[in-house]
Amino acid sequence: MAAGGDHGSPDSYRSPLASRYASPEMCFVFSDRYKFRTWRQLWLWLAEAEQTLGLPITDEQIQEMKSNLENIDFKMAAEEEKRLRHDVMAHVHTFGHCCPKAAGIIHLGATSCYVGDNTDLIILRNALDLLLPKLARVISRLADFAKERASLPTLGFTHFQPAQLTTVGKRCCLWIQDLCMDLQNLKRVRDDLRFRGVKGTTGTQASFLQLFEGDDHKVEQLDKMVTEKAGFKRAFIITGQTYTRKVDIEVLSVLASLGASVHKICTDIRLLANLKEMEEPFEKQQIGSSAMPYKRNPMRSERCCSLARHLMTLVMDPLQTASVQWFERTLDDSANRRICLAEAFLTADTILNTLQNISEGLVVYPKVIERRIRQELPFMATENIIMAMVKAGGSRQDCHEKIRVLSQQAASVVKQEGGDNDLIERIQVDAYFSPIHSQLDHLLDPSSFTGRASQQVQRFLEEEVYPLLKPYESVMKVKAELCL
């Protein structure tokens, strides 16, 4: 049975990233139509530049190519590739079939990587351009969430054990800070992308030097003109047959890092959902379990974690691919890159769409948070109580021993009897502590235990987050809708 299948058929496997999760716009960027249309555009740009620099290419040939950029006979191309065992030459023939007058000058002087690699770089750039505003929107939604809850005390956790208090907004800023680093890295790697350009079979530009009869300047002009037509500021000066596969490492490393950030955020949300302090959106008709109707599973956060793990592992592909590119190139890269580049971007696209949807509907339960604080705060307040007693004339050592005994009794009630923490009640009825009984409410005010959390939130948002989001103001209103 021949390899390949009808990918629109229910009898043929289709990647869930495309069929179930990723956005239509990201799927289109990695589609065959987008790819092969870009090949034709690159052939047109090459012909236009070659004509401008004096090669015998007519206006009629150029116009014929322009008129057929979208006229792609995919069936013919597939048949040609089956016959020739070469995808680029299959599309040269297919393009030439609908451009008979231009057929002889299509791909003039070029090698397969002229269309293959340059198209990949265009796709990487455009895919990054799709991700950047999506990530900015996630940051914006979380920034709104953090600002609104900047002063809401909550129990902090280290080692997932109760620690000092923080605020809900401050905790959210930990998430935002990681995503801001990801946004900066995505922008950097996007701006650092260079075009492969017009380089020939081993990167020496020998074929173009021959076409222009040894004119170095025209060869350099050709490279520059096509690079500018493709919208790049610069091209690699040095290439082998391909652009260095280190570029793929750079791009997928940034995406993998984004995956790590999203995994951490969504894990926190899942843990908070278990504590009943916070939940992701839950639709009115949504079913959490087929057997347990009360369940409210954090399905979206779980999906993000599941896909983020996949995204983090994909960076190993370009690392290994770059390491086995012998001399000017081997074909070890080809099949692998067809999979890992598309999957990385479709996965990143999915987790950003999902995280935006989550961040637009996060639900906080202040009463649950308050109750958990009441359970733990008495123990945390013991040092403040000791200091207040010393100020009232008591002995630190005597007070410490009193607190120690009462704390152990209260802990026994919590752990052995399943009761509430009654340390404060014990202190309130103990005559030894009568000098500070009137101060206990103040000493137990949760806001006095959150330090500068709310001020940190305000400063972080104003100095770091809002300036970073400013270039994306025009796209901030787009909502994230999930079908599944």
Rank of each mutant, 00 (worst) to 15 (best):
A90E: 03
A127M: 05
Y472F: 14
S253K: 07
Y365H: 10
R404M: 15
G8W: 11
Q164N: 12
R171E: 15
I139E: 02
T350W: 06
Q458L: 07
R137G: 13
M65S: 09
A163S: 03
R245I: 04
K284L: 09
S31E: 11
V254C: 14
T347F: 15
R125K: 05
Q177C: 03
R20M: 13
G8F: 13
G116Q: 05
D248H: 15
R190D: 13
G200F: 05
R83F: 03
E64H: 03
S67A: 00
C304Q: 00
H442R: 02
L193Y: 04
E60D: 09
G169I: 04
K66E: 03
L444W: 13
F212K: 04
G393V: 12
V390R: 02
L211F: 07
E81N: 08
H400Q: 03
K66G: 01
S454V: 14
V262I: 04
D178R: 11
S207H: 00
G200K: 01
L482Y: 13
E220D: 01
I106D: 01
F345M: 08
L341A: 11
L46A: 06
C304A: 01
G451D: 09
R396Q: 15
D191N: 14
A49S: 09
M387Q: 15
P318R: 04
P281S: 12
R371S: 01
Q325S: 07
I385Q: 14
Y466N: 02
A344W: 05
P366A: 03
A206G: 04
L258Q: 04
T330V: 12
I62W: 09
F433C: 14
F157R: 07
I386P: 07
I427A: 15
L406F: 05
E343C: 06
I373F: 01
L275D: 03
P281K: 02
C113R: 03
E279L: 07
A47G: 07
T167H: 15
Q221G: 13
V457G: 14
S23G: 15
E48Q: 07
L307D: 03
C304D: 02
K477Q: 12
M65I: 13
K264S: 14
E148K: 04
Q210M: 01
F345A: 08
I57Y: 06
G288Q: 02
A127C: 09
I176V: 10
R338M: 06
C399R: 09
S412C: 05
S301E: 02
Y466W: 14
R137V: 11
Q164C: 04
K284F: 10
E79T: 00
F95Q: 05
R83M: 10
L130M: 10
L258A: 13
Q428I: 12
K35P: 10
H263T: 10
Y13T: 11
S207N: 14
E425Q: 14
F212D: 00
S207Q: 04
L179F: 13
H107C: 15
Q416M: 07
Y472A: 10
M76R: 11
D191C: 09
E148R: 04
A206Q: 12
R329I: 15
V315P: 06
G5C: 06
E376S: 05
D120C: 13
R303Y: 03
M389I: 15
G116Y: 05
F449P: 04
L484E: 13
R194T: 04
G361L: 11
I351M: 04
F327Y: 07
F236D: 05
G394V: 03
L355K: 01
A260K: 07
A150W: 01
V324C: 14
T382G: 06
Q241L: 09
T52W: 03
G394F: 01
R245F: 00
R20S: 10
M387T: 15
P446S: 12
T52I: 04
I373T: 13
T450V: 08
E481R: 11
A143L: 11
E228R: 14
E417R: 13
D420S: 11
L444E: 02
A344C: 07
T313Y: 14
S447H: 12
I122Y: 06
N357F: 15
H97N: 08
I122K: 10
F433M: 09
G4F: 09
C180R: 03
A431V: 13
L193G: 09
V88W: 02
A150C: 03
G156P: 03
A77Q: 13
D182F: 06
D430L: 13
D182T: 08
D445N: 05
H217I: 14
L209S: 01
L482I: 14
Q397S: 14
A392S: 09
Y365R: 15
E383G: 12
N68T: 07
R296E: 11
L443T: 05
R329T: 07
V465F: 04
S395Q: 14
Q164Y: 09
C399L: 07
E220T: 07
T58S: 09
E213P: 04
R37M: 05
G104Y: 03
F282R: 02
C98H: 08
D216T: 11
L84N: 11
D398R: 02
Q285L: 08
L193Q: 10
C304T: 12
A342F: 00
D223L: 14
V92I: 05
L319N: 10
H97Y: 00
E148M: 05
V368Q: 03
E48V: 06
Y243T: 14
L258P: 12
E250W: 15
D59Y: 09
T201M: 00
S290M: 06
K402G: 05
T313M: 11
F327L: 11
L17R: 01
E425H: 10
M181A: 04
L128P: 08
T154I: 03
M65L: 00
L44P: 03
R452H: 14
A78D: 02
C304Y: 10
K470C: 09
L142S: 01
L258E: 12
Q409H: 04
I265V: 08
R137I: 09
V478L: 09
P10I: 13
G214P: 00
I436M: 06
Q41Y: 12
D6W: 07
H437C: 01
G169H: 01
K276Q: 00
E277F: 00
R303L: 13
G240R: 05
Q184L: 09
M181G: 11
F145L: 13
G96T: 01
W43A: 06
F460E: 13
Q205Y: 02
F36K: 06
F433K: 08
L352Q: 09
V429T: 14
P298G: 06
F145Y: 13
F449T: 06
R196G: 09
Y472S: 00
V29R: 10
A410H: 14
L142Y: 04
F95I: 06
